[in-house]
Design a protein around this nucleic acid. Structure first.
Length: 521
RNA sequence: GGGCCCGUAGCUCAAUUGGUUAGAGCCGACGGCUCAUAACCGUCUGGUUGGGGGUUCAAGUCCCUCCGGGCCUACCA
């Protein structure tokens, strides 16, 4: 038996200086959907996420709260982890940059870059922003009315001179451009790639990669007075999670990563700095960096009775995990910006989940329960209509795989729900309830075909709505080991005569809670 | 200043990458059905594809320009 194809994907590691917001949730649930998809498609998936716990901000926040940085990291990292759990994320490993294994990986990566001659000591002077952990040209800064000098994003800067190690990023310009050229889908979507290319074409300056102004970080091996710059530390997590530097670790077989899922705000670090570090250290480059867009709350009024639903935990509590996941993945083109609001979430999830697939399953399965002794009915010969809808369902696997090869999550869902809509039309057009009185065999056939389509749709929906999909598969008595994509198509057809449990509604409608307080925001 | 992306029905988006009368969902109106989660099916309303010009037998798609929105990057001090 051939070894399964490996698939390694990551989220960025989150900075647990504050509480998780909807952007973190979006990244995590999207990455999870991809992970589940590839797993169901037979791959040996490794899904890494975690928290990035070093830096001055952590140290300062900890001081403000009267605790050590490690205590703060422990406390807040747990919150992020709980968020991912609340979203039903199936990460295989939750990395924390304060762990020894990560210190080892960073240290070794640094050593290799140094050995390659790409690191040198020099002095950096300029306006430094603690919040951004970055220097700014004086021209970029501005003194505000309050007399405080700030960088463009508004954080205060102070004049700083420090000795710092530099990475020879400037010498990687041509190699990076050659890599983008040879791998047109290294950065997706296309617009992001264009930005990256034009940025690199504009010339690269060497990058300051160490700090002496604080000590909450990973020490530079040859010079412990320095700690590593945030991005050397943070980006390296992706190889730490694959066992680096122990290349005999079985996990190392997962590197290079198939895709780093990130938000578009951190494209440059992932598409320019990270590959340059790896080239320098002689480590293979990840195959793809996929940048998703931002989500905006378009001033939709959230109901007072449900409170501030923008918080990820509240979203899940208010609408449900499946609903939250489905909404963001179906409504927003992955890679583009999107917006969300109460009404949009309710409309989308009620229409697609409750009305379309939930109701289709319920109406067909309850007919089976009532008219077929609760067993999968035996179909007669198939008509053209039967064959057409079955063929549509059977054809989905190829279609969705094509979409997901480019992380086109929305397209994958579009395709699946097109079939759901077809199935509703089919069911209504064939009128099994009428055939019940005139032609039982025909009724059985229609119910069989519909249930079979529901089976395939449920299997395909698992990555996005794992709970509701599981419920549907349970209603169809589909064996646990027949729920992956290998069971799609003709080979996995429902077995006639199998007993089915009494169905109840999967994907309940969201109904507005009666405004008990009599008013709204 | 240079560069990139976008603007299609009230809303969210399609259109095999120049090829017939620009499609679908949601919303709305009307009708149907009763298996079903106030669900489902059908019909209809709704567009000079932001404006203008050009290339072509043919433009939502290519070129120019203007308007509007977003983003990357650089400069001016």
């Amino acid at each position: 038996m051939a070894e399964r194809q490996k698939f390694y994907l990551t989220t960025p590691i989150f900075y647990p200086n504050g509480v998780p917001h909807i952007g973190h949730a979006y990244t995590a649930l999207a990455t999870d959907a991809i992970a589940r998809f590839e797993r169901l498609d037979g791959k040996d998936v490794r899904f890494l996420t975690g928290t990035d716990e070093h830096g001055l901000k952590m140290k300062q926040t900890a001081a403000e709260e009267g605790m050590s940085p490690q205590e703060l990291a422990d406390r807040n990292s747990a919150v992020f982890r709980r968020m991912e759990d609340a979203l039903d994320c199936t990460y295989d490993d939750y990395i924390r940059t304060t762990e020894p294994r990560h210190h080892e990986a960073c240290t070794e990566l640094w050593r290799r870059m140094e050995a390659a001659g790409d690191i040198y000591l020099s002095k950096y002077t300029g306006w430094y922003s603690v919040r951004q952990e970055a220097y700014f040209d004086e021209k970029e800064t501005e003194v505000g009315d309050d007399g405080v000098r700030r960088e463009p994003l508004g954080s205060p800067v102070e004049w700083t001179e420090e000795e710092t190690y530099f990475f020879r990023l400037s010498s990687f310009q041509d190699k990076l451009l050659a890599h983008y050229e040879a791998n047109p889908e290294f950065v997706l979507p296309r617009e992001r790639r264009n930005e990256v290319v034009s940025f690199v074409e504009g010339g690269l300056q060497d990058l300051s990669i160490s700090r002496t102004s604080f000590d909450w970080g990973i020490k530079v091996p040859s010079d412990p007075g320095h700690v590593m710059y945030v991005w050397v530390d943070a980006l390296t997590n992706y190889i730490t999670g694959a066992g680096f530097p122990d290349e005999s670790n079985p996990l190392w077989g997962h590197w290079p990563a198939d895709v780093h899922i990130i938000g578009k705000d951190i494209v440059r670090f992932h598409a320019v700095y990270w590959p340059a570090f790896l080239m320098s250290a002689g480590v293979e480059l990840p195959k793809r960096v996929f940048a998703h867009g931002f989500l905006f709350n378009r001033g939709e009024k959230m109901s007072k009775s449900v409170g501030n639903v923008v918080d990820p935990f509240n979203l899940v509590e208010t609408y449900g995990v499946d609903q939250t996941r489905y909404f963001f993945l179906r409504e927003v083109g992955f890679g583009q910006d999107g917006s969300y609001g109460h009404e949009a979430i309710v409309n989308r999830t009620n229409a697609d989940l409750a009305n379309d697939i939930g109701n289709l399953a319920q109406r067909s399965l309850s007919m089976i329960a009532k008219n077929c002794e609760g067993k999968v009915p035996a179909p007669g010969s198939f008509t053209d209509a039967d064959k057409a809808i079955l063929a549509a369902a059977d054809g989905l696997h190829v279609l969705v795989r094509q979409a997901m090869d480019r992380q086109a999550i929305k397209h994958y869902l579009d395709a699946v729900w097109d079939v759901v809509a077809d199935a509703n039309r089919y069911f209504a057009g064939e009128e099994p309830w009428a055939k019940r009185k005139t032609d039982l065999e025909r009724m059985n056939t229609i119910l069989y075909v519909t249930a079979e389509v529901v089976r395939q749709v449920a299997i395909l929906a698992q990555p996005v709505v794992p709970n509701g999909a599981k419920q549907l598969l349970d209603f169809l008595s589909v064996a646990e080991d027949a729920r992956d994509f290998a069971a799609l198509g003709e080979t996995g057809r429902l077995e006639v005569g199998v007993e089915l449990p009494k169905p109840t509604g999967a994907f309940p409608r969201y109904v507005e809670p009666e405004a008990a307080d009599g008013g709204k925001a």
